[in-house]
C-alpha cells in the first residue's frame, strides 16, 4: 500500500513537471490549429466534408500525441540522472521499480489530459461544422481510446530507451520502433513472399518482438462512420497491458542495475 502511495506521489510530481513543459503547450496549440484547419479542408472537399474532418482531426490527435509521448518520454529518466535530481529521490525510501512505474504513470496522465483537450477541440470543430452533435459522432471516442493505447505503448518504449540511452538516440530508436511497428503486418507478408527462409524468420521475429502499432489504426474506418468493434477494443487493451508489462519490467531490470556516478 505504501508502495502504491509512493508511486502515486512520483507520478503526480512527474505530471506536474510535464504539464509545465512549454513545448507541450506549443504542440497542443498546433494540434488545435490543425483540427480547426480540418474544417476548412472539409469545406473544400465536396461530399466528403465529415470524412475529411474526422480523418484529419483524429490524425492530428494521434500525431501530436505521438510527438508529446516521444519528446517527454525520452527524457523521463535521462533528465533525472543528468540533473542529479535522482540522488535525493533514491536516498529516500523509494524503491527503483516504484520510481520507474511512477514516472511512467505521470507521463501517461499528462498524455491523457492533453488527449482530452485535443478531443474536446475535435468535437468543437465537429459541432461548428455540423451545427449539432449526434450520438453516432461519439463513435470517434473508440478511435481516441485506441490512440491512447498506442501512446501508452510509445511511452513504454521511450521509457525503456530512456533508461539506457541519451535523449537523441532514444528519440531515434523510439521513432524507428513506432514506424516499423506500424508496418509489421506488411513486413511479415513481405517475408513470407520472399521465399527466403532467413528473411521469413527475421520478419517473423520482428513481428513478434516489436509492438504492432498497425493494430491500433482505426482512424480511417471511424472517418467512414464505422464504430470500433468491441473485440478489437478488448484485444488491443489486453495486448497493450501485456506489452507494457514486458516493457516496464525490462526498464526496471535495467534501472535496478544502473549506477549513478
Amino acid at each position: 500500500m505504501k508502495s502504491v502511495r509512493r508511486i502515486a506521489v512520483i507520478a503526480l510530481q512527474n505530471f506536474k513537471e510535464s504539464v509545465r513543459e512549454r513545448v507541450l503547450y506549443n504542440l497542443i496549440v498546433f494540434a488545435l490549429l490543425l483540427i480547426g484547419a480540418a474544417i476548412l479542408f472539409g469545406r473544400i472537399s465536396v461530399g466528403v466534408e465529415q470524412i475529411i474532418l474526422v480523418n484529419l482531426g483524429l490524425s492530428s490527435i494521434s500525431a501530436f500525441g505521438l510527438l508529446m509521448a516521444i519528446f517527454i518520454g525520452i527524457s523521463l529518466v535521462w533528465k533525472e540522472i543528468d540533473r542529479r535530481t535522482i540522488y535525493s529521490i533514491l536516498a529516500k525510501p523509494v524503491r527503483r521499480p516504484e520510481f520507474i512505474i511512477g514516472k511512467y504513470f505521470g507521463l501517461v496522465g499528462t498524455l491523457l489530459i492533453n488527449t482530452a483537450i485535443m478531443t474536446t477541440g475535435f468535437y468543437v470543430a465537429l459541432l461548428y461544422d455540423k451545427g449539432r452533435l449526434e450520438l453516432s459522432d461519439f463513435r470517434a471516442l473508440g478511435a481516441v481510446y485506441m490512440i491512447l493505447l498506442q501512446l501508452a505503448l510509445v511511452v513504454g518504449v521511450a521509457l525503456l530507451f530512456s533508461c539506457i540511452s541519451t535523449p537523441i538516440l532514444s528519440a531515434v530508436f523510439t521513432l524507428c520502433v513506432y514506424v516499423i511497428g506500424n508496418f509489421l503486418n506488411d513486413i511479415r507478408w513481405f517475408g513470407q513472399e520472399t521465399n527466403s527462409a532467413w528473411v521469413e524468420k527475421l520478419t517473423t521475429f520482428l513481428y513478434y518482438l516489436l509492438p504492432n502499432f498497425g493494430n491500433f489504426n482505426v482512424i480511417s474506418r471511424t472517418a467512414h462512420g464505422e464504430s470500433v468493434p468491441g473485440y478489437l477494443l478488448l484485444s488491443n487493451s489486453l495486448y497493450t497491458l501485456l506489452y507494457l508489462a514486458i516493457l516496464i519490467s525490462a526498464a526496471i531490470l535495467i534501472f535496478e542495475e544502473r549506477e549513478f556516478r
Partner: peptide
C-alpha cells in the same frame, strides 16, 4: 531513518521550495 544532502544538489526547478519539501515529505509517507 536517514537523510541525505548530495554534493552540488539540484532539485526539480519548476517546484517552489515549499512544494519540493512537501514532495519529499510525501515520499516518507
Amino acid at each position: 531513518r536517514i537523510g541525505y544532502l548530495p554534493e552540488q544538489p539540484y532539485f526539480y526547478d519548476h517546484l517552489t521550495a515549499e512544494e519540493f519539501l512537501n514532495f519529499a515529505g510525501e515520499l516518507f509517507g
